[in-house]
């Protein structure tokens, strides 16, 4: 269970502080998915970084599994915009990095995940030798290597072409259903939010405040994009964003 109460994030010193997030509340049950959508630069990423323990809230509380978040935690994994791969490490080294940092490598490794994601053949390559889609899959492999109970994703498919984006959205959905982690996705893409979020929170321009919450109970199948329910959710989200 994730609980966010009255989350406020300010940047800068008190007299010249810029408010990025203002009194945001939401909660997420175990193994459910939530999308946060809002205009670019509204403060979505700040919320995600606070959940990852990378930012301290100026006010309010964040609890994961009943424990307040005070720093990065092993059961929480973060996927960044450009997959966050280190260019000087091979696919194998990148995929195993979280395990290595936690002291679990080589006792545990990401071999099976790399194989399942079709990356076994490229494990000795560097990120510069991979397509954008492959890089995202390596990022996913790294995030899943520690078997997290919470997966945070910060616009993970930005700058990908439409077909690759859809393929990786399908992959996210399948992995979420297989691995049963709680998923929080930050995006500015309405279609992505409607495809992956059981609940979608629409945020205002900076400072980010909760503008509307759209529930999306019928998501969860790969052909959901073709359904009327999906079109309705997309329409509701567009209206909420334009309001």
């Amino acid at each position: 269970m994730i609980d966010v109460e009255s989350l406020t994030i300010d940047y800068g010193r008190a007299d010249r502080a810029v408010q990025a997030v203002e009194r945001v509340d939401f909660s997420l049950e175990k193994r459910r998915s939530l999308a946060l959508i809002g205009p670019s630069g509204c403060g979505k990423t700040s919320i995600l970084f606070a959940l990852a323990g990378l930012l301290s809230p100026s006010n309010g509380t964040i609890k994961i599994g009943g424990e307040p978040v005070t720093g990065p935690r092993r059961e929480v994994a973060l996927i960044l915009q450009n997959a966050g791969l280190l260019p000087w490490k091979t696919v194998w080294q990148n995929a195993n990095l979280s395990l290595l940092l936690a002291g679990d490598y080589p006792g545990r490794n990401a071999g099976v995940i790399l194989h399942n994601l079709g990356l076994a053949e490229v494990k000795s390559r560097f990120p510069a030798e991979l397509s954008e889609g492959m890089k995202r899959r390596v990022g996913i492999a790294r995030a899943l290597s520690t078997a997290p109970s919470v997966l945070l994703m910060d616009e993970p498919l930005a700058s990908l072409d439409t077909l690759t984006r859809e393929r990786i959205q399908d992959l996210f959905l399948t992995l979420w259903q297989e691995h049963r982690f709680s998923l929080i996705l930050v995006t500015h893409d309405i279609v992505e939010a409607a495809f992956l979020g059981q609940e979608i929170i629409v945020l205002t321009k900076q400072p980010a405040r909760v503008k509307a919450t759209v529930v999306n109970p019928k998501m969860g199948s790969l052909d959901y994009r073709q359904s009327e329910a999906f079109q309705r959710t997309v329409h509701d989200l567009r209206e909420a964003l334009e309001r």
């Binding site: 990065p72 973060l78 791969l85 280190l86 936690a102």
Partner: peptide, 20 residues
């Protein structure tokens, strides 16, 4: 992004220097 990538995985200060 490279720093955030390892910090989010709980890297210590020494690990950040060594890996990034």
């Amino acid at each position: 992004e490279h720093l955030t990538s390892v910090l989010s995985a709980g890297a210590t200060r020494w690990q950040v220097y060594w890996h990034v």
